[in-house]
Nucleic acid binder design. Structure first.
Length: 372
DNA sequence: GGTGGCTTGCGTCAATGGTT
DNA sequence: AACCATTGACGCAAGCCACC
């Protein structure tokens, strides 16, 4: 961190470099979120021992500024000029202001701390290379496809971290599992949170017929879906679970035997018929996820259902990535907290040392005064 | 043993700001 | 505008510990 090793102020860089009484004379050029300037005044001795203090005169508490902006504290160097003014010596003030205008991230903060502070503190690493090398995700076949048992749903195993562009995302409804399998419930996630009402999910048992008709047959042969062949109910491989808001997850088997799922807004008639929908695979969706768009939506209810379906699709898309992101975020946060704790320990130790030094100097002074 | 409180970690969603 | 990265908030589950 720039400024370590010298007399430091924790501030946002908005100290006026020369003005006497109006430290905010440069405020007009500051980002708007720096408006909450705290004119608390304190000095922070450097955390790095053996570094020369650059300010010769003792800076009184009233001459120092701590300015917090957007939750981020920046440390800069200042020196006192001959007239008792604080003069900032940090050369790239503008850069700092730019940085401060952004939302702080644990990665940035910790990296700044690490780069300038203790060499022992490791930087938060960028994305590891091995993550890009992982290419597959294990999936298990839905239990209600594998067996004719009473429990529907399927498990998703994620032993590795596939890159998003290769992720064959497979989603499914919440799974009511027998007690013996509930021990693994943390790995069983479906569309919607487990906390959501699963009563609206229903299983279409083998033997029922589900027809999904494409408005344009070419729609099924675009965007990498050339190999799709639906297995029909006669093979017992087509299942559907009605989602909230009238959408439905349809699972089917491709020609190569792999499982695929389609979310469609479906109203299944008592006769088991399904309305016709366009099926397409937008490029924005991960591999393995196709989107079905109902044709001729007119009523507000249908619009609401459509928006709910779109929302679910969006959440589907983001779920896996965000899971990984949350892990990383938590890891960075922990590292950041550890770093802060280390820094606190260093500063406490230094404070002790300074107090001792002050004591001995006082004693020396008193002793000298007595002898004179 | 079992029960309740606490901590920790995880997955998910939403909000926000940056990037393309 | 759409997409992406980051992070706070929330709920849940598991582990731990003290207490009964």
């Amino acid at each position: 961190m720039p400024g370590f090793g010298g007399k430091q102020l924790e501030m946002d860089g908005s100290i006026d470099d020369k003005s006497e009484d109006s430290p905010s004379s440069s405020g007009s050029s500051q980002p708007q979120n720096l408006s909450t300037v705290v004119h608390t005044i304190t000095a922070v001795p450097t955390a790095i021992p053996n570094q020369p203090v650059q300010v010769q005169s003792v800076i009184q508490p009233t001459q120092q500024s701590v300015i917090q902006a957007a939750g981020q504290i920046q440390t800069v160097q200042v020196e006192e000029d001959g007239e008792g003014h604080l003069v900032r010596t940090d050369p790239d003030i503008e850069k700092r202001r730019e940085i401060l205008s952004r939302r702080p991230s644990y990665r940035k903060i910790l990296n700044e701390l690490s780069s300038a502070e203790a060499p022992g503190i490791a930087k938060i690493e960028e994305d590891k290379e091995e993550e890009a090398a992982i290419t597959s995700i294990q999936t298990t076949i839905p239990s209600y496809v594998q067996t004719s048992g009473q429990y529907g749903g399927y498990c998703i195993k994620e032993p590795t971290e596939p890159p998003s562009h290769q992720l064959p995302i497979i989603y499914g409804p919440p799974v009511p599992l027998p007690p013996a399998r509930m021990q693994d419930s943390s790995k069983v996630r479906g569309i919607g949170d487990a906390s959501q009402d699963s009563s609206s999910y229903k299983k279409v048992t083998a033997g029922q017929t589900i027809q999904i008709a494409a408005a344009n047959q070419n729609e099924l042969t675009t965007q990498g879906l050339q190999t799709i062949t639906m297995t029909n109910a006669g093979q017992g491989a087509v299942t559907a679970a009605a989602m909230p808001a009238g959408t439905t997850i349809v699972q089917y088997t491709q020609g190569d035997g792999s499982q695929q799922f389609v979310t469609v807004p479906v109203s299944i008639s008592p006769a088991g018929e399904v309305q016709a929908y366009q099926i397409r695979a937008p490029s924005s969706l991960p591999a393995g996820v196709v989107m079905a768009t109902p044709t001729g939506i007119t009523s507000p209810q249908q619009l609401a259902e459509e928006s709910a379906r779109k929302r679910e699709l969006r959440l589907m898309k983001n779920r896996y990535k965000n899971r990984e992101a949350a892990r990383e975020c938590r890891r960075r946060k922990k590292e950041y907290v550890k770093c802060l704790e280390t820094r606190v320990a260093v500063l406490e130790q230094q404070n002790k040392t300074l107090i001792e030094e002050l004591k001995s100097l006082k004693e020396l002074y008193c002793h000298k005064a007595e002898t004179e």
